[in-house]
Amino acid sequence: MNFRPFRPIALLAGLLWLLATVAHAAPAAQKQTFVLVHGATAGGWEWKRTGQFLADDGHTVYRATLTGLGERMHLNGPDIDLQTHIDDVVNLILFEDLHDVVLTGHSYGGMVVTGVMDRIPERIRHVVFLDAAVPQDGQALWDLFGSRGPLPADRFKDGFMQVPWVKPGDAPPHSVKQSIRCFEQPVSYRNPAALALPVTYVAFVPKDQKIEERAKTDRSWQNAQARGWTMRTFPGGHVAQQEDPRGVASLIEAAVEDRNRAPRDAMP
């Protein structure tokens, strides 16, 4: 009897079995829920391309825009403070009923995510500080950067930090002025559950800057290292997420598996 006509069927069956075996042995990478928090004067628009790369990789992505900034600039006012912005992100997580969140903060956003960590640590899986402020408990941003002296009149007036590179008639998206209260209000970081969260600190380091010098002068770097957080660097300027959105997206994805170390073992 000639069995040749059945060979394609047998081959197909074998291939399907092999694919099923491989799929069972190597499950797909776990998908995450990312909440991205922008820096001062910016908005969720600044993270659009990075967020899209994360979404393309199968993750769920929320790009928060803080009150008075970005597309919410119509709500801007001198009474907005850091607590307003912490509430923005806390309520986003609560009202969207998010759990196991990978919370990321850029620049001033580090102040915001610090407050969010303190409030709802049970909703957070991992935190990533991207070239961000890392305050101590009870510190304001100006305390962290030693800027409690007189404010420059052309940069800080009428209750706002002015943004000189935004001109009348500029088309959105663009940065906007921001309430000074955001920078002078201290943040709480004392919840034991928040202190135990796994955190990654990433310094965006330009090509003309030496990592060793940055580590010696950057208080946020030093605070992160003292806490035993995972320390990473990424080549680029302060807005590296706009210079290399794919690279920053991949960096955030990789950071999820980082774990805190004993402070004495934390290395730059």
Rank of each mutant, 00 (worst) to 15 (best):
T65N: 04
S147C: 10
V127H: 07
G149T: 00
A133K: 11
L75Y: 09
D131I: 00
H174E: 07
A133V: 14
H85K: 08
G109R: 01
P150Q: 10
F156G: 12
A64P: 04
L144Q: 11
W165P: 00
T65V: 02
V89M: 01
F129G: 00
W165E: 11
E71R: 14
Y189R: 01
V113L: 05
H174Y: 08
G146F: 00
P186N: 06
R190I: 05
Q162E: 13
V163A: 12
V187A: 02
G110Q: 05
F95D: 15
G77P: 05
F145T: 11
P135A: 08
A140W: 00
F129P: 00
D97E: 15
P78A: 12
F160Y: 15
Q185M: 12
H99C: 09
F145G: 07
D100A: 10
W165N: 09
E71Q: 13
R181E: 11
V163S: 10
Y62S: 06
V127L: 09
L66T: 06
G105T: 03
Q136C: 04
G110L: 03
P168F: 12
R125Q: 12
R148A: 08
L141N: 07
T65H: 07
L141F: 09
A171V: 13
I120G: 03
P173Y: 02
M117N: 00
P164A: 09
D143H: 05
A133Q: 13
L82G: 02
F156I: 15
L103F: 00
F156Y: 15
L144G: 08
R155E: 14
M161T: 11
D87K: 15
E71S: 14
N76L: 07
R119V: 07
